[in-house]
């Protein structure tokens, strides 16, 4: 689960966490946006990097608890077609 604001300044923590998950051999990665208060293109780029690494190992990355605004941003960037988005889209 992601928490708080994930931007150009804090995205390194996400990269580090993804690296640990991959090193643990996990191939099914579910990223919850339920506690995210802000994310930008740095977060999206990190998720794309994570997806590439996971797909290479035969797995997949799923985005869950995506709110209406986050879905809009995913659509604007075309990433809604790249990621599997599961669960009901939250109103806010």
């Amino acid at each position: 689960m992601l928490h708080g604001e994930i931007d150009h300044a804090s995205v390194g923590e996400l990269d580090t966490h993804v690296k640990k998950v991959l090193e643990a051999g996990v191939t099914e990665v579910v990223v919850s946006f339920g506690s995210v208060t802000f994310f930008d293109s740095a977060c999206l780029a990190a998720l794309v990097r994570a997806r590439e690494a996971v797909v290479e190992r035969g797995g997949r990355v799923v985005l869950s608890d995506v709110n209406r605004y986050a879905l809009r941003i995913l659509e604007l960037t075309g990433l809604d077609a790249v990621f599997t988005i599961e669960g009901q889209v939250r109103a806010s």
Partner: peptide, 20 residues
Amino acid sequence: DIDTISDVQMAVDEAAAALL
């Protein structure tokens, strides 16, 4: 409106990051 506020926040973030 809330979408405009959110868009302005994200836009300033992206513009500043691109400049930096």
